[in-house]
Design a protein around this nucleic acid. Structure first.
Lengths: 132, 132
DNA sequence: CTGGATCCTCTATGATACTG
DNA sequence: CAGTATCATAGAGGATCCAG
């Protein structure tokens, strides 16, 4: 009997696809991982993530905040101070994300091997004009 | 004591991000869901997925095959027949994917509400020229 | 310090036509 | 039937400058 994975309703697929696209972008996961241990300021995140651009950090935080996964607390000081933190909803997302992280860890090398093998097989198909 | 989610090594993040980008694209998950119950031919998938373009189905299948998540079996007949199926590795991915699917199902409406609320708050910030 | 606006580039995707 | 190549368009992302 085949198992019944991936709830197969249209809505289900839509929701999951939306979620995967969201957390699967370049930076969402990286930013979230910086918030696991507590609130961080914009500049702190910039320093911790040398590769992210100013623009994309702002944009990513805005999206995560909009989704309710990250909270944004602005303190009426000068210069302005803003702290970002995971919301309770954001924390619940960490569990399934961890399941996926573990899978990725376990199988990434296998997938990498698969890709290498695939690419080599492709090459051999294009230049089989070997010595005869 | 804060929990310890999202294995925080650089490699771990990289692998997970790669995986999320892969299965988070527009079609991978949709295609995979069609293979859960057994092998399918190219045209069968096209019929089952009215929205996907010819090109993207081919490309998605090729990528999944390259990663070793989907097998591709070509029968030397005329006209040609090709069957796609999940590999054992592909099947193992269904488990963590299901965890995420469940989360998405459970919380998608909450996130949708969050977005609506966020957008309304934005509007109110731009046009607070209300009756005074 | 925070973060939005603008300009530019690269990639993803669709539509279409072509090949084995 | 299965798959690729070409062209066109939309969105992601970076660099930079400007504003509160």
């Amino acid at each position: 009997m085949p198992h019944q994975p991936l709830c197969v309703t249209e809505d289900s697929r839509q929701h999951t696809r939306d979620l995967l696209r969201r957390v699967g972008d370049t930076w969402s996961l990286v930013v979230v991982s910086q918030l696991v241990d507590g609130p961080r300021r914009f500049t702190e995140l910039m320093r911790a993530l040398p590769d992210i651009s100013h623009r994309m950090l702002a944009k990513t935080l805005r999206t995560l905040n909009r989704d309710g996964l990250v909270s944004r607390t602005s303190y009426p000081e000068v210069p302005p101070r803003v702290e970002y933190d995971l919301t309770p909803l954001g924390h619940t997302l960490l569990i399934p994300l961890n399941t996926l992280t573990t899978w990725a860890e376990t199988h990434s090398s296998e997938m990498e091997d698969n890709r290498t093998r695939f690419d080599q097989a492709q090459e051999n198909k294009h230049k089989p004009h070997g010595p005869l």
